[in-house]
Write a protein that binds this DNA or RNA. Structure first.
Lengths: 213, 213
DNA sequence: CCAGCCATAGGTACCAATCCCTATTTTACT
DNA sequence: AGTAAAATAGGGATTGGTACCTATGGCTGG
């Protein structure tokens, strides 16, 4: 019997999961919690193998909570449940030490058990419906890319932008590339004009978008 | 027989994977490619169900390549192979439409087959050893957090840093906070002194670390 | 072959940011 | 209540980046 704890502030969800798990014969629910605080207080006693964690608990940030638990109880595997996916949440939770990521809309019996099985074997389980979400985003970014083609930066401009955001002054860039500071300034102006950047910080954001950093 | 294509510039790896797959009886290798260009040229003819894609192809960026393929051939499932994990690569590849992410060091027979099985069923497979990498990072960030406590920025300084990196000039910040530009400049100096930042761009990086952006 | 783009370079002027100071008031902690 | 830290404000000098010009040599595609 694998011991599972559940943290969710909706008793209906907690009950539903508890029912599903108890009917398997493989899993036993050893604790249910409605807040981050009660969860942290209860964990040392029950020490489950897996924690099913709602991302949106009322009192604590889900990622921070997961980080704390993953840090202090490295043996506990965390399956995150979230009502809706937002960009970056998946990677944030994975990097916070979670082993699984499920949307509540897909958390039906078979999916939940499949996820738990994968996690218990030491694997990482990711909700399949994320593939569709990513695919939609692909179409969005593809459209944005085409739009950007118009005001594309030249090779030299990209090179100089890379140096700018690496904290070099125009003079330093000039020395490194064996060109005059004036030329660097001109390139800089072109970059600013093409990108519509207001100042250095806007440039930095663009560089981040272009993955120069 | 599920049709698999392989893109990797190391023939040894391609051969090894081909051998593994051919011995299963379930999979057949319908094409091998050593560059992004030849891959894109060959795909329309062979149309595999799964593409095993090396992230580090000589001629193209792995993420862009994956995006193109996921965009133009939404039916092809992509399993990414990478020699080493770097932060953000996993989420980048997932968001580029990939269904699986494997480190070459863990790509042994059983793992490879498990990954392919998951992917063919429409799932997402993530290398288990990433859990350990994430766990290490957890310890790093935790340590870094403690270290940063020493030269902590004051509330006001954090507030102003937030505005600075949101592209506001000192004057604009002064107007918004109803203080003089001089005060803003002084806070700016304190921030620069405390953080050791050389200029705006270093500040931006610090703000990113502090999650102000 | 020529038009257009790119990379190169310089001049001038302006403004924003930075450095190096001093100094007052407010807040927080002992 | 008293002290330290934080937030406020200013002067003056310097540096760095930006705007708006002109101009030339090299490469490329129609």
């Amino acid at each position: 019997m694998t011991r599972i704890a559940i943290a969710d502030d909706h008793p209906l969800i907690t009950n539903s999961i508890e029912n599903i798990l108890n009917h398997t014969g493989y899993y036993t629910v050893c604790g249910t919690y409605e807040s981050g605080e009660s969860l942290l207080a209860g964990l040392p006693e029950v020490m489950p193998e897996v924690l099913i964690l709602d991302y949106h608990l009322p009192d604590q940030n889900g990622a921070q909570l997961a980080r704390s638990i993953a840090y202090y109880y490295p043996g506990i595997k965390i399956l995150v449940l979230t009502g809706f996916d937002k960009p970056g949440l998946l990677s944030e939770m994975l990097e916070s030490g979670c082993s699984g990521y499920l949307l509540k809309t897909s958390a039906k019996t078979d999916v939940l058990l499949e996820a738990l099985q994968t996690i218990c074997k030491g694997g990482i389980y990711i909700d399949k419906s994320l593939k569709e979400i990513f695919a939609e985003n692909l179409h969005r970014t593809h459209a944005a890319q085409i739009k950007e083609e118009g005001l594309r930066l030249t090779k030299r401009e990209l090179e100089i932008l890379g140096l700018i955001v690496n904290e070099l002054s125009s003079q330093e860039i000039a020395d490194r590339l064996f060109i005059s500071k004036k030329t660097v300034d001109n390139h800089r102006s072109s970059i600013i004009m093409k990108t519509g950047a207001k100042n250095n910080f806007a440039l930095m954001k663009i560089a981040i978008d272009l993955k120069l950093i």
